[in-house]
Amino acid sequence: MKINGIEFDENTPEKPDMLSRMERRAFLKLGLAVTGAFAGGTILSLSSIAGRAFASPDAHAKQYPYKPHYSMLIYQNRCIDCERCLEACAKTNHVPKYGYRTAILEREAPKSTGLKREFIPVLCNHCNRPPCVRACPTTATYKNEKNGIVMMESKKCIGCKTCVAACPYNARYFNEERKAVDKCDFCFATRLSKGMKDTACVEACPAKARVFGDLSDPSSEVYRMVHQIEKTVWVIRPETGVAPNVFYTRG
């Protein structure tokens, strides 16, 4: 029998039990090293392999590049567009009227048999492979090495707006007051760094549509929801290859 040009009949079939534990470990390590080398060590995200990789959480938990690996899970059907999250965000982070760090989009499905309309909260996806960070000429926007939050160092921003054009999520805008591009930082500057556990939008949401947490912590809700296969979990614009950390589901 020939598969992909390789003669199989004469070979002893390889089985997992023929490999020693050490060999397997070495092989896995090699694989990780290769992926890491090509992607600068920061690529891993579950988004692109959603639906097939989540079944083996232990193996993947070790690969999260950040600790805590901050992420957000959004129960899309729970959002009622009360916009308290937007208010809380603007108040907490001093977001001007002409801009926003998070928004709620509205999608209508008139021919749907159940709900005819749903609301989709959107924000920066804190991608593992952030195109804005790659494109910024002065590293004014960067990915925090500890927690993976995509942050701004405003004083370095030259205002070329390449990051704005590069973002697949329309998550950035130029803030006239800061003289720099502004974006969601999961409330790091205003809340997380001061010991608070949630972002302002999550705290403000009365419908529990937004869940914030550590994707590398198996006891967190985001971890549990992302690492299961019974319910569909998706991300926005997976085709861009940016490996986002904001997940969507219904329920």
């Binding site: 790659r134 494109a135 910024c136 002065t138 370095k156 921003c157 030259i158 205002g159 003289k179």
Partner: peptide, 20 residues
């Protein structure tokens, strides 16, 4: 928006993956 930053941080804080 900030042409002065452009000159200063292009040197002090370069990003070699950036086409700009």
């Amino acid at each position: 928006e900030n042409p002065v930053n452009m000159v200063v941080y292009n040197v002090l804080s370069p990003n070699f993956t950036s086409n700009i």
